[in-house]
Simulated assay, not measured.
Amino acid sequence: MARYTGPVCRLCRREGQKLYLKSDKCYTDKCPMNTRNYAPGQHGQARTKKLSEYGVQLREKQKVRRYYGILEKPMLKYFLMADKMQGITGENLLKVLESRLDNVVFRMGLASSRIEARQLVVHGHFLVNGKKVDIPSYLTSVGDVIEVKEKSKKSPKFKHIQENSQGNTPSWVESDMENLSGKIVAESTREDIDLPIEEHLIVELYSKNK
């Protein structure tokens, strides 16, 4: 499946704000957003043209796609799913995105970034309710228990994750770093999203083509 494999810092610069795609680097002075806070490319510094209504909506959608690391087709699928759910469509969309396995692994502190979480899931390091799941887009539910496979717990990667755990997990998940496991105890809420997102703009964009 096609996926962006270039420098992820370019994605932050294109959106004009940190998307925290590089874990620890994003919090240091080495972050390119601190030194080159303008769009990438030859004419990046000259991009001052005011965006149209469509352009503003598109940039918001692209920001969310890059934040969660998903392509356009899955993004549309999630929107259609959220649109059929009870409640506010935009908040439903974020709730669905938060329930992806790669995001849950990251939220539990079992990976330093969503990019790393996706890689670890694909390599088959995690169990969901005792069964191996290697699909990053797998949608989890309240009550699901996610844990690192017993064999994988001995790897240097997870030892490093344990030693550098920050312990700042959101309220909707429980994390047990000693046993490298966690549980989803509630649905995520809008307040759990720590990135400035105007989800109503995404809904307006997709609603035009319904």
Rank of each mutant, 00 (worst) to 15 (best):
S155R: 06
K49W: 08
A117E: 01
K149N: 08
H123P: 01
L110D: 07
D192S: 04
N34E: 13
K157S: 13
P74N: 02
R47K: 15
Q45D: 10
S112P: 02
S113C: 06
P32I: 02
I146L: 14
L58G: 04
K149C: 12
T89V: 13
F79S: 01
L205A: 09
L19Q: 02
D24H: 15
S137F: 00
F158T: 07
K84I: 10
V203D: 03
V105I: 14
E198M: 12
I135W: 03
A39M: 10
L139C: 06
Y54D: 02
K154P: 00
R36W: 15
D29E: 13
V8Q: 08
K157M: 15
E191G: 08
S165V: 15
G90F: 02
P74T: 09
L139Y: 07
L180D: 02
E198A: 15
E191D: 10
L76D: 04
T140A: 05
D144S: 12
E199L: 12
N168H: 11
Y68E: 07
K210I: 15
A39I: 10
L76R: 14
Q45E: 11
A2I: 12
V56L: 12
A117Y: 03
K18V: 13
Y20P: 05
D192I: 10
Y54L: 09
L110R: 03
I146G: 11
Q119T: 07
D102V: 15
K157V: 15
V203H: 01
G44R: 11
R14T: 13
E91P: 01
M75V: 02
I202G: 05
